[in-house]
Design a protein around this nucleic acid. Structure first.
Length: 418
RNA sequence: GGUGGGAUGGCAGAGUGGUCGAAUGCGGCGGUCUUGAAAACCGCUAUACCUGAAAGGGUAUCGGGGGUUCGAAUCCCUCUCCCACCGCCA
């Protein structure tokens, strides 16, 4: 949520910033509503003041004197009720507008409309070359009996997959490998709930943000399956106030992720690149406001370290304003080279959500000048399906076997999949 | 699914209609004492909003919402969550 005070102080700047990412706002309406709000608060406060003043004497009075004072107060009660009801409506209107606005992009984020406008900021490693005709991951996976789409279709439907045999073991290995690195860096490991309530989901900015159809929603319980563990980790500390010395607080979470992929008909329909359920290890940080840019660089550098250690070529793009997610003020995507597509595909993403989620969730820290909202950030450690695809395709050999990167050997117990 | 008990400040925990934003203890901050520290003693120590240049002034908040009342932490209704036991069950 955007700070309403900031919005009233610098309406032009905010409008311009929102404009950059295609969000519209009627500033005059907000100003008008805020005036009404303050007016109502003052009137109500004045009534309360009068009541409080009378209350001090009323308990000392008896008989007719008491009745007289009470009679004077009676009309105020009705007046207050009306004002209060009006105030609730005014505040709801303001909240509705504010909650529907996305986060403000950071100043240096490039303006653009779609992912085509994203800016490549770095390219690392040489695109994998083969002295034979490389296969795509699905052909490899089916031949090796480690990915099974056909049976998943039978059991669940389209966009599901079984990871079997070495692929199943590889998931466990990747998780443990990346956990070990992150624990070393001070991240706290978590297995979060995959089903969260409405308040948590809304607080994280995923109700207004993307099409609601993207999420699995259980109406009877008003609960949502998480699309990323970020949605489960962020609200852990809602309505809490940190001590400044507790920050930064870093978590790494391993969870399943569920996505309806409602808006992607016909896109990536084959295989496991876009599925309804996948596992992911995620990083999540709560930091002091002036440390969030630094924290995002840390997350990005960790992501690069992970990918490099798996001997995968990749590039980093800075996501343009039009492609930012609702709560994000800056996002970097890390894309691994996928030989069969002769293209880079997103395997990692990191977003700086500044105080947007913290404000919605009321996550603060004690500062010298009072309590301030923290900044929150999230980043992928490993999205298992996608990273598996990159591993299979880039490390395939002429005979169809897969060479496993050295760092994973101790974790999975094999150095090749045949 | 059933029955019962709870939810009060950073934490623990009093408070059953007015003078209660709330006793007390712990923790935290500052001070006295001390070469330093501990102990002891003294003082301070919630959040949000309105108003104001500031100092300050005002209002609200005892899990959430509603009700009774001139007045609610306290009485009534309701929701959520937590705990205990019983039943079922991975």
């Amino acid at each position: 949520m955007i700070d309403v005070k900031l919005l009233l102080e610098k309406p032009k700047e905010i409008k311009k910033s929102l404009d950059k990412r295609g969000a519209k706002i009627d500033i005059d309406k907000i100003v008008e509503l805020d005036n009404q709000r303050r007016d109502h608060i003052q009137k109500i406060d004045n009534i309360h003041k009068k009541q409080n003043e009378s209350n001090e004497t009323i308990s000392k009075l008896k008989g007719k004197d008491k009745e007289d004072v009470i009679a004077e107060l009676r009309p105020l009660v009705q007046k207050e009720k009306v004002l209060k009801a009006e105030l609730v409506i005014i505040e709801e209107k303001i909240a509705k507008v504010l909650m529907s606005l996305p986060n403000l992009p950071l100043d240096d984020v490039k303006a653009g409309e779609t992912d085509k406008d994203n800016e490549v900021i770095k390219e690392e490693g040489e695109k994998t070359k083969f002295d034979f005709k490389p296969k795509d991951y699905l052909a490899l996976g089916e031949k090796l009996d480690i990915i099974d789409i056909k049976r998943a279709a039978k059991v669940s439907g389209t966009r599901f997959g079984y990871l079997k045999n070495q692929a199943a073991l590889l998931e466990i290995a990747l998780v443990k490998y990346v956990f070990d690195i992150l624990l070393e860096k001070g991240f706290k490991p978590v297995i979060p709930p995959a089903l969260i309530n409405y308040e948590a989901m809304k607080g994280m900015g995923y109700i207004e943000g993307i099409d609601k159809d993207e999420m699995y929603h259980f109406e009877k319980d008003n609960q949502f399956l998480i699309g990323t563990s970020e949605q489960s980790i962020g609200p852990m500390h809602m309505k809490e106030i940190f001590d400044a010395k507790e920050l930064p607080l870093r978590y790494t979470a391993y969870s399943p992720c569920f996505r309806r992929e409602a808006g992607s008909y016909g896109k990536d329909t084959k295989g496991i690149i876009r599925v309804h359920q996948f596992s992911k290890v995620e990083m999540f940080s709560y930091v002091l406001p002036d440390k969030s840019e630094e924290e995002q660089e840390l997350m990005l550098s960790l992501q690069e370290e992970f990918v490099k250690s798996l001997e995968l070529p990749y590039r980093v793009v800075s996501v343009c304003t039009g492609d930012l997610s609702f709560p994000s003020s800056r996002t970097y995507d890390l894309e691994c080279w996928i030989p069969s597509e002769k293209n880079y595909r997103e395997t990692h993403s990191t977003s700086n959500c500044t105080d947007f989620q913290a404000r919605r969730l009321k996550i603060r820290y004690r500062a010298k000048s009072g309590n301030e909202f923290v900044h929150t950030l999230n980043g992928t450690a490993f999205a298992i399906g996608r990273i598996l695809i990159a591993l299979l395709e880039n490390h395939q050999q002429k005979d169809g076997s897969i060479k496993i990167p050295k760092v994973l050997h101790p974790y999975c117990g094999f150095d090749v999949i045949k």
